[in-house]
Computed example of a mutant assay.
Amino acid sequence: MGLRFENKVVIITGGSRGIGAGCVKTFVSEGGKVVIADVRDEAGAALQDELNACGPGEVHYLHCDVTKESDIESLMSTTVQKFGRLDCLINNAGWHPPPQVIDDISLDEFRQLFNLNVLGYFLTCKHSLPHLRKSKGSIINNSSLVAQIGQQKALPYVATKGAVTAMTKALAVDEAPHGVRVNSFSPSLVWTELTEEYLQKAGYKDIDLIMKEMGRNQVMGRAGTVEECGKLCLFLAVDATFMTGVDLPITGGAELDYGRKCHTQP
């Protein structure tokens, strides 16, 4: 079999680490021309150099703050100027704040998260679509299982991911006449640098121990990996040619079976 994304072009936001980096590595390994859009210049450049040294695809890093429309316009024009086309957009840039109850969440904090997690996706979708319509390409949005089941002390994050899932479905309807597919995927627990940062800010000392305990929230008994997320995105980009407006769970069965749900003492 040949390379599954050979000579095609994908933009991956937040691609310097975590799930984004897992997607970058997967698409490069299948011959893709990958543009990393991120604000972590050192990490993005390092990943670019690492993967370009081994191929078979090609990586190009561009500084891009997805909350700034001018950065996104430059991202799209530079990508198409360099590679001549755009076949896929993977919206992944985002953030999960530390645990907070509604009493302690300010309007500015909620607005800033919404700007990043939702409006960033909106802007990249908007400015990528003129190019994706030409290639009959696709958009893949990183949502979250918690958009469906909720999460303790994470109201703004859950709300933003719910918006991402809903926006995915609405955009899929609008873009079907243009031949552009729009799908999303919803991870549960995936081990990333952001996961570790969240747990540290939540006050956990033994990160390895709590990750093992949290792994038991999945019926498969473990966290997912960024590589598994990358493979799912490749499937959505290449193989899922009759799928649009779909949100695919990548959860290890976290939403299955009964479990302890009460967070108060009896």
Score class of each variant (00 low, 15 high):
residue 70 S to Y: 05
residue 83 F to L: 05
residue 252 G to H: 00
residue 136 K to I: 02
residue 158 V to K: 09
residue 36 I to T: 05
residue 109 E to W: 07
residue 58 E to T: 12
residue 214 M to S: 12
residue 23 C to D: 06
residue 117 N to C: 03
residue 186 S to F: 04
residue 64 C to W: 09
residue 97 P to V: 05
residue 115 N to V: 04
residue 189 L to D: 10
residue 175 E to H: 08
residue 26 T to L: 03
residue 97 P to H: 01
residue 126 K to D: 05
residue 150 G to E: 10
residue 221 G to T: 04
residue 112 Q to N: 15
residue 137 G to C: 02
residue 19 I to L: 13
residue 52 N to A: 09
residue 107 L to I: 15
residue 99 P to T: 08
residue 163 A to M: 01
residue 139 I to S: 11
residue 59 V to Q: 09
residue 156 P to W: 09
residue 95 W to M: 14
residue 16 S to C: 11
residue 181 R to Y: 00
residue 224 G to H: 04
residue 177 P to K: 14
residue 29 S to K: 15
residue 245 G to E: 00
residue 30 E to A: 05
residue 113 L to D: 07
residue 204 Y to G: 08
residue 30 E to T: 06
residue 197 E to H: 14
residue 47 L to R: 00
residue 24 V to F: 09
residue 49 D to S: 15
residue 44 G to W: 11
residue 70 S to F: 01
residue 63 H to R: 15
residue 137 G to S: 10
residue 27 F to N: 01
residue 187 P to S: 06
residue 240 A to D: 10
residue 263 H to Q: 11
residue 172 A to C: 11
residue 6 E to G: 01
residue 117 N to S: 07
residue 43 A to T: 01
residue 34 V to H: 09
residue 235 F to R: 11
residue 8 K to W: 03
residue 74 S to R: 14
residue 261 K to P: 01
residue 70 S to W: 05
residue 187 P to W: 07
residue 125 C to W: 00
residue 58 E to F: 13
residue 204 Y to V: 13
residue 216 R to V: 02
residue 159 A to Q: 03
residue 217 N to Q: 15
residue 45 A to Y: 13
residue 40 R to V: 00
residue 132 L to F: 11
residue 40 R to A: 14
residue 182 V to R: 07
residue 78 T to H: 06
residue 231 K to I: 00
residue 134 K to N: 00
residue 200 Q to D: 11
residue 1 M to R: 14
residue 222 R to H: 09
residue 3 L to W: 07
residue 12 I to Y: 09
residue 116 L to N: 11
residue 24 V to T: 02
residue 20 G to E: 04
residue 241 T to G: 10
residue 77 S to F: 10
